[in-house]
Nucleic acid binder design. Structure first.
Length: 331
DNA sequence: TTGTGTTTTATTGCCTCC
DNA sequence: GGAGGCAATAAAACACAA
């Protein structure tokens, strides 16, 4: 480390190069920075160390006073005349910025290759009349700036990508909610339809039981029909409960959007026929025949399953939230 | 003119590679 | 162990509004 600092202080490069690039026309400035630039400077004879102010030169090879400054310095500073020169040498500790042309030159070189091989560093230092150490520092700082900008761009790109994905996600969520509502509506329609259908069948069954009072009802109707009767009984028993289904208090409904539609169906929901018309024995038979089948059958409507058949619980396979709808789509 | 924020040049300390 | 890169930082130079 200390050695490097010493290198900076004692830089062995020739600091007295005089540049004439500006007098060679535009083509010279556009030449590739990776090319040797020997033709663009005149090696000076002085080897005296000028530190950071090394861009200043006094003599050309022949010892003649060609310019008080390097080519680059002359661009911006020659109009300041002697005062500027005084400042230059009376305050040698001051930091001085590179000239615009030096920076342009370095930028072009950086575009070609952002890493600096020792030979290139020496060459650039010669071309620009700077210390190799200054060239190295400039490239180092330039790489840091490039990295910062690159990270900023990357960040912007990621943010744009995130915004786009977020918008997609939001629209999908809206679409999902819309579809949920549609499914809910259609399910209710189907239930109503089934209810009406079951009502008709129920009235037929009642007529049959009146016509054949000794026969158990279970023998007269299919198991499937019994199921339907049961669920309809449930719904009829507590038609007002339907409003409760949509209440947030319902334990089977949690998110305020989804509805499990059906309420738990315990034995109290079972259809109870008019006891005045049926004997105790018959009543028992009837009750047995009307015991609720597995819950999943309750909604076996028109051959389509709507709830989890593996679940016998009265929540009809509706856990909380979206899983209910996953079940919808899987059946 | 001056205070303040930004940019550029340079230093320091640490790390990796050969 | 030396050379070089990088991150963090200091400090000078610069830009600009009030």
């Amino acid at each position: 480390m200390a050695d490097r600092r010493l290198l900076y202080g004692g830089g062995g490069s020739n600091m007295s190069s005089v540049f004439f690039q500006n007098q060679r026309g535009p083509s010279s400035s556009s030449s590739s920075s990776s090319e040797p630039r020997d033709s663009l400077f005149i090696p000076g004879s002085s080897s005296s160390f000028l530190g950071p102010r090394s861009m200043v030169s006094f003599e050309d090879v022949n010892g003649r006073n060609r310019s008080k400054r390097s080519f680059f310095c002359s661009f911006e500073q020659e109009e300041n005349g002697e005062e500027d020169l005084d400042e230059y040498f009376h305050h040698p500790e001051k930091k001085r910025r590179l000239t615009t042309d030096q920076v342009r030159f370095l930028e072009k070189s950086f575009e070609v290759e952002n890493k600096l091989e020792p030979e290139r560093k020496i060459q650039l230092a010669k071309d620009l009349g700077l210390q190799p150490r200054q060239i190295a520092i400039w490239f180092q700082n330039r790489r840091a700036r490039w990295k910062t900008k690159h990270l900023e761009k990357e960040n912007e790109s990621l943010q744009a990508s995130y915004s786009s994905l977020r918008a997609d996600y939001d629209s999908l969520v809206k679409e999902k909610e819309k579809l949920k509502a549609e499914v809910l509506h259609l399910t209710e329609m189907l239930l109503l339809k089934e209810k009406e259908k079951a009502n008709l069948e129920l009235s037929d069954t009642t007529k049959l039981s009146e016509a054949y009072p000794k026969e158990p009802i279970g023998d007269l109707i299919s198991e499937d029909e019994v199921s339907k009767v049961s669920v309809v009984a449930c719904k009829q028993e507590d038609s007002s409960a339907k409003s409760d289904v949509f209440d947030s208090d319902s334990p089977h409904y949690t998110d305020g959007v989804h509805s499990s539609v059906l309420e738990p169906c315990d034995s109290s929901y079972i259809f109870e026929p008019d006891q005045s018309d049926i004997s105790q024995e018959e009543e028992d038979k009837l009750n047995n025949s009307l015991l609720p089948p597995p819950a999943y059958e309750f909604l076996k409507i028109d051959g389509a399953h709507y709830f989890d058949p593996s679940s016998n619980s009265c929540d009809f396979g509706f856990p909380v939230e979206d899983q209910a709808f996953n079940n919808f789509w899987t059946y």
